[in-house]
């Protein structure tokens, strides 16, 4: 179980996250949607235990992280059981894409890397560029590699920040089909996305965020029949744009 309780976060006096409460669907997909700058990535970074909120709790299975964090308590985040794919990807530039995927897997002594990597290379169409360096690959190719790097670590919780932003329609379909196929493998996926179609058809839970607050959440049907005016307007704007 990954649960966020009463989370508040700010960099300055202006709060960026206000009293956030959410529970990740275990073994399912939770989609986070909302306008740019509403705090989606900040929330993901807090959930990934990379930023320290001012108050609240984050529970990852039996580990509870209570904030403000006591200075004398050692911070031991459960990485890579809880892992993240960042929007900026952060692939290591001195390693090939294949090495980027294999380094953490090998250092963590995770077995059967070759067979699983080959399957991922096929699933993500990475065969033609897997031995290139990150700067020799396009953003879309790097996005697939970053996702593969995270998946290979067999995480319990996978947090994804707009990982399909640079992919073409065909690649998006492949990645999303793959994510859907992870159902039943005991992985809780949290994905920030602008793809309402994906949120509607693949997710088990949808959260809509505005100005650092959760405005509305529920099953994917909230995207068909929104309860709040803000979500209705947001969906209308996106529908008009597309």
């Amino acid at each position: 179980m990954l649960e966020v309780r009463n989370l508040n976060f700010s960099y300055t006096d202006k709060p960026l996250l206000k009293n956030i409460n959410l529970k990740l669907t275990p073994d399912g997909i939770t989609a986070l949607i909302g306008p740019s700058g509403c705090g989606k990535t900040t929330l993901l970074r807090c959930m990934a235990l990379l930023d320290m909120p001012q108050s609240g709790e984050i529970q990852v299975d039996d580990q509870v992280f209570r904030y403000p964090w006591a200075e004398n308590v050692i911070f031991t985040p459960p990485w890579p059981k809880l892992t993240t794919v960042f929007q900026q990807l952060f692939l290591w530039p001195h390693l090939t894409l294949r090495e980027n995927i294999l380094l953490p897997v090998r250092r963590r002594h995770i077995a059967d890397t070759n067979g699983e990597l080959d399957a991922l290379i096929d699933a993500f169409d990475m065969g033609s560029f897997i031995d290139n360096y990150p700067n020799e690959a396009s953003l879309g190719q790097r996005q697939r590699v970053a996702l593969a790097r995270a998946v290979m670590l067999k995480p319990r919780y996978l947090l994804l920040d707009e990982i399909t932003s640079a992919l073409d329609v065909e690649q998006i379909a492949k990645i999303l089909t793959y994510l859907k196929s992870l159902r039943g493998q005991n992985i809780g996926i949290f994905i920030i996305t602008h793809l309402l179609g994906f949120a509607r058809h693949a997710s088990d839970q949808v959260i809509f965020m505005v100005n650092g607050e959760i405005e509305e959440s529920g099953g994917p049907d909230i995207l068909k029949t929104p309860k709040t005016e803000r979500l209705f307007n947001f969906l209308s704007v996106i529908a008009a744009a597309s």
């Binding site: 990379l50 985040p77 990485w79 890579p80 993240t84 960042f86 952060f90 953490p104 250092r107 670590l153």
Partner: peptide, 21 residues
């Protein structure tokens, strides 16, 4: 710093981060 953060969330130890990244 982002290379270190990426390594941390991938579960690399501090020693691995220094020697491999």
């Amino acid at each position: 710093r982002q290379y270190i953060i990426a390594g941390r969330v991938c579960g690399l130890s501090s020693r691995d981060l220094v020697t491999h990244i």
